[in-house]
Computed example of a mutant assay.
Amino acid sequence: MNYQVDLNGFYGNYGGAFVPEVLQEQITRLQEQYLAILQEPDFQAEMARLLADYVGRPTPLYYAKNLSEKYQTKVYLKREDLCHTGAHKINNTIGQILMAKRLGKNKIVAETGAGQHGVATATVCALMDMECIIYMGALDMERQAPNVARMKMLGAEVRAAQSGAKTLKEAVDEALLHWIENPDDTFYIIGSVVGPHPYPDMVARFQSVISAEITKQLVDLEGRSLPDYIIACVGGGSNATGAFYHFLEEETVGLIVAEGGGKGLDSGQTAATSFLGKDGILHGSKTLFMQDKKGLPVEAYSISAGLDYPGFGPLYAHLKEVNRVEFLAIDDDAAMQAGLALCKLEGIIPAIESAHALAVLDKKKFKPTDVVVVNLSGRGDKDLHNYTTYFKL
């Protein structure tokens, strides 16, 4: 089974580039040039230098002794929360800002949900002295106020998306509209493995540094390069893709996705795309997303601002179709309890997105000899208000 994108930008039956005519020239140019640019020695050298000296890679693969004792299995945490800006998102924005420079763009637009991609984009724009506009749902701006402040301190203009659910989907809508209106000088830094080809593949390649490091680190820690399981949360899917990338064709490695179950699959307040999604075109690609009777995206809900997206990237639609990944819907309470447990057992405060992945440890039984890697995609600083409010601390 091949899990890489084909020449037309499809993973099996999903993917492609469905964009307005005004963007076709920009998308075609990017499709034709991105692989060649990625392979340039100068690009690779600059990327490697920034990942090491600026982002702080490699991130540790930490043996969580107390978690391992609780769940009677070997639990390792891939510490993406220790990246500069506090999440995996910086891996991708470093790559895309370098791509934008080589394509002659001098302005950047982006969307953000939990704010981590917005912060990472604002960070690299400050580094490269580029104008930066970030669209963020008005509700998410309230939930993630610390990240809004960080973006503004870094020099970005943060614009509120006021339509619909006022969350991530609406932020993407507004960012795409901005790009449509400013195609010549603006590059859209998409934060996840979503959107028109080549974005899902490009983001996957930039995030694949995570799984590349895991293979090397496990050799030192366990004497083998393959874990038994990797667990990651999925909204659009970027951190999971990074953690899964080098293991997709290793069928002995179990890949487990934690989705935002919200208040339950039948509640009308969920983001469990794999259970409720249908085929359709969303934000420039064919994928699975939750729809109403007219085929329009419905409002997604999760206590996590980074998971309340009504769909996911086309790679995940393909992985579901071929049964390569196990999907679990994690409800709000399970995620919050798992996040608090990590705080008390390991002294690490995770992002609520990452807490959904940790909750899988309560849902599945693993063998004592299993090596289970949980991708800790971000730190919980941005979520302290949500944690303290939820638990009345």
Results as ranks from 00 to 15, higher is better:
M1N: 11
G9W: 02
Y11C: 10
Y14I: 07
F18L: 11
F18P: 03
E21I: 12
V22K: 03
Q26V: 14
Q39W: 11
D42V: 14
F43W: 04
A45C: 15
V55C: 11
R57D: 03
K74E: 14
V75I: 09
V75E: 02
R79F: 05
N92T: 01
I94N: 00
G95Y: 00
Q96V: 06
M99A: 12
N106K: 13
K107L: 08
A122D: 01
A126T: 08
M128Y: 09
M136E: 06
E142V: 15
A145V: 07
V148Q: 02
M153C: 13
G155E: 13
S163D: 14
E174Y: 15
E174A: 11
L177K: 08
H178S: 14
I190H: 03
I190W: 00
H197R: 09
H197T: 05
H197C: 03
V203M: 03
A212L: 15
L218W: 13
R224W: 08
P227M: 08
G235D: 03
T241C: 08
F247W: 11
E249H: 13
E250C: 10
G254V: 08
G254N: 10
A258R: 03
S267T: 07
A271Y: 00
L276D: 08
S285D: 04
L307A: 01
L315N: 08
H318W: 12
L319Y: 03
N323Y: 10
V325K: 04
L328F: 09
I330Q: 04
A338D: 05
A338M: 07
G339V: 05
L340C: 09
P350S: 14
A351M: 12
E353W: 00
S354N: 05
S354T: 10
K365E: 06
K367C: 07
V371M: 12
V373S: 06
G378L: 09
G378R: 00
